[in-house]
Design a binder for these strands. Structure first.
Lengths: 149, 149
DNA sequence: ATGGGTGCAAAGGATTTGCAACATT
DNA sequence: AATGTTGCAAATCCTTTGCACCCAT
């Protein structure tokens, strides 16, 4: 309980810092993002939180995650052609997408573009930069190598 | 006619270089990509080519563009959360996405990551790198500024 | 006649929309 | 009361799938 409160406080703080009113649903969703760096999809967040908030709807998860990314409380990741996912880690880092299994991983050591504030390029306002790597993850490579032999 | 042949020859050459058998549909689609750097979606390619190839189907456009990106004959761009688009320009450059109008633009001057060949990072095989910028384009900024006044 | 390529129709899945119910100030 | 938030159901839109046809080797 005490532990939960700690993380929930961090989630609430993040929301308030980003000018988002902390409803029960929003705090739970933000808390999930801040404790699960698995780049969850809407479906994953929805499924994970349903037992906790029994009336939760997918629509709310959609609305909330979109709001978070608009207010820069979380990052919307469009690396997967099939579905959007979200990242509660707002520090600059590179995302890697496995074309075989669809997994999204972090590459922390790589030189990710830093976005200190919005900049202007040829009249366009740029307020977000994301570097995506794509390929085949170690796990899938092993699996594929095993199949051939 | 002569002009058409020139570009079609370039398209055919690109396909052959990438190990793709040049059917009529594939050559036309590749030719479209190599003469329209507008980051077209499947729908746009389909609509543009329908008058020319009257039996063309969306399925073929889907299949073909996917094949192109798999064989690195074109680039699949996942910057837009709503739909995938494609780029016939395979030189490294940055893509900018306007969150207002959904337009995808090139930033050629920016330092895009270069991908000479596949590299390995922590056991993962990386064969593609894309840098995405997101924000509001010059046109939309003007339009929005005009509305306020 | 075999394999690859194409196209149609249907299915699938992710996301959005409209609207009513609800909570909070 | 007013405003913002939530949740349900339906709609929408993009993409994939299954299958039949067709073409070229």
């Amino acid at each position: 309980m005490a532990r939960n409160n700690i993380t929930h406080n961090a989630a609430t703080k993040r929301l308030l810092d980003c000018g988002i009113k902390p409803s029960i649903q929003r705090v739970e969703i933000m808390n999930y993002l801040m404790t699960h760096f698995t780049h969850p999809t809407v479906e994953e967040v929805y499924t994970a939180l349903c037992p906790k908030i029994r009336t939760l709807s997918r629509t709310t998860v959609y609305n909330t995650l979109r709001l978070f990314s608009e207010r820069k409380a979380a990052l919307m990741i469009t690396i997967d052609e099939h579905r959007v996912c979200y990242d509660g880690d707002t520090h600059p880092h590179v995302h890697f997408y496995c074309k075989e299994c669809g997994k999204v991983m972090d590459f922390m050591d790589e030189s990710a573009p830093t976005m200190p504030a919005a900049i202007e390029i040829e009249g366009n306002l740029v307020d977000e930069m994301q570097l995506y790597y794509k390929g085949v993850c170690a796990e899938c490579r092993q699996r594929m190598a095993a199949k051939v032999s």
